[in-house]
Design a protein around this nucleic acid. Structure first.
Lengths: 340, 340
DNA sequence: CCGGTTTCTGAAACCGGTTTCTTAGCCCTC
DNA sequence: GAGGGCTAAGAAACCGGTTTCAGAAACCGG
């Protein structure tokens, strides 16, 4: 339905080339002609076709962003950071979710390549190297989060959980806790693995051996069932570290349902500081991850990567920090022994 | 970096036309040739360029989805519903957020037209008619939610809050409440206005005159300040209806901070049933809006709209339903009169 | 064995921009 | 007033697919 550039050109009595030059300011055009063209553009309500532009310039002003699931509250801030940065520079972003399915991931990657994106940020940690290879082979840059080291056309953003975790452990030790448990997240997830390691190492440093270290996925209800399995043991922990806020909230829920008070009976600590963490009852003590910044940096990293094409990518670091709210409290002196 | 169709053609000893036909199955090709082409496609790892395809077919397999803000938990399910439906039919979606800014909305619309989308679903209720006119003028179909009646190339999905609201009011009346308050949402928001009207009408039907009816935006903290202003009055309500779950959660937060117990002292009811509603403390009683379905229907509506081009759009309806959780309880016999 | 179909494939035009190459016209200088 | 250097704008090729049109080959029936 829309008009074409030639129509504009004809109506303004100039050549298409001139219209193009006026619209892109790529060459000086006499003010007279320029005005005439712009007038027609307004009259006709002309929009230039992005696809034609992409085709002829061979440059696609598109970047891809891959996440697992839109409903997971971990992602919104990342998306916003990424989109915001892209928008500021005049780039568009194609958002795809993998729904945790490898098959779907594959289609997504294909779509991205077909769309001729300049680069893609992969914020899921369940991607295999085959996938990234496919992307780089097609000449598109890749940035991911918490996966291997950078390589040709791929950069990595590493979230350093160390600092936040240390703070959390010190906080908990200062409150007098000695019996800890860890619900880490999916056992095959790089991020979850990293977090679990850091947690265990940190606890050991304080001569604490976390009791159950439990695998679960990132859905809320699995935090709940993990907690139930912990409660069924004879020696109950007084604090449980969770691999994500979602898990933590599920855990708090289950705890409450089992009649265990948070934080009076057991303290719980999450990771991420999702926007709802402070709305939880009690407000969740958690290790905050700068997700909006993560998104923004991912975009910048991609831009940089595409500038120095075929160079090796870089490694970026992002810190974390403990946010103390109300889900942690001093350890109870008397540890209940009752086996429910 | 990627290969072109002509390269494939050359390597397979056929013409580009043949390659195109093989890849799109648009015409019968001898098995022999077909295999040869497919083999080369695999060898070269060839991806066809979407932009070229869009350009030459004049069909853009793209749909747009406009929301206010990605971080607002109202939207994820809508996005998922829309994307899911689109994905199933092989369409891609361009997601944009307006950040509540008219200027930004305008750029977004421009981008959508330039991208030659087939249709766009506008899930923000802060859009003016000028905007939709621009879209329809460019021949792209529009579907929105809770805005005016359908017209040429525009359909509307109307969420019928009536049923849910009636249920909520009956629920509350049955619990013995007589003093109600309403925190509706932004006064210039069509949805908020609709909800407020329905609420007041419903309450009047039970001979109840809601006390303060307060405007606020959709951010959490404004639910909190609205509640504070309500508490400062001498006659306190025993139940407050909120125009969204976010407002309700902000309200509960503030209530708790002011030492008012939910639901013992005052009950609160939200609208939307966002995914966190059941995680609130106490779990929120709310009127659920089928948002994933809303997204899916929006897509279907767009498809239908584009099929019978230049026809008048249709009106769709979506029901709502009360979900009773723990934020509502019987009214206190003795109403506190203390002015804090 | 010949004319008429049908089947398979290629040549070329086209989609709507961008960009290179070229030229017409102008100004300036000597 | 002629020649050199600029400037503004057009013609045409091109990006990478799709599709129409046309033709060669194969096939078929009589």
């Amino acid at each position: 339905m829309s008009h074409t550039m030639r129509e504009v050109a004809e109506r303004a009595g100039v050549s298409p080339a001139t219209v193009s030059r006026v619209l892109n300011k790529t060459q000086y055009i006499s003010p007279d002609t320029e005005q005439r063209v712009l007038k027609v553009v307004r009259e006709l309500n002309y929009y230039k076709n992005v696809h034609a532009r992409r085709l002829s310039t061979g440059q696609s002003n598109l970047f891809g962003l891959v996440i697992s699931e839109i409903a997971n509250p971990y992602f919104p801030e990342i998306i916003r950071g990424f989109q915001g940065a892209a928008w500021d520079k005049g780039f568009d972003v194609l958002l795809f979710n993998t729904e945790y399915s490898p098959a779907r991931t594959e289609s997504v990657i294909r779509k991205l390549i077909e769309s001729d994106v300049r680069g893609v940020a992969i914020m899921t940690s369940s991607v295999d190297t085959k996938t990234t290879a496919e992307l780089t082979a097609a000449g598109v840059g890749v940035v991911f989060c918490n996966l291997g080291p950078p390589g040709r056309l791929v950069s990595n953003i590493s979230i350093d959980y160390q600092r936040g975790i240390s703070q959390a452990i010190e906080h908990v030790v200062a409150l007098g806790h000695r019996r800890t448990a860890v619900i880490a997240g999916p056992g095959d997830n790089r991020t979850a693995i990293t977090i679990r390691r850091a947690l265990i190492a940190g606890l050991n440093r304080h001569k604490l051996n976390p009791l159950p270290v439990i695998d679960c996925n990132y859905r809320i209800d699995s935090g709940a069932s993990a907690v139930r399995s912990i409660l069924s043991r004879s020696e109950r922990p007084t604090v449980v570290f969770c691999g994500s806020d979602l898990i933590a909230m599920g855990a708090m829920n289950a705890l409450e349902e089992e009649g265990v008070q948070v934080p009076d009976d057991v303290s719980v600590i999450g990771i991420d500081d999702i926007s709802f963490a402070f709305l939880a009852r009690p407000p969740l003590t958690t290790i905050s991850v700068p997700r909006e910044r993560l998104g923004a940096i991912a975009f910048e990293a991609l831009q940089k990567l595409m500038k120095l094409k075929r160079q090796k990518g870089a490694e970026y670091y992002l810190g974390t920090e403990l946010v103390i709210r109300k889900s942690t409290a001093p350890a109870k002196q008397q540890v209940s022994r009752s086996v429910t």
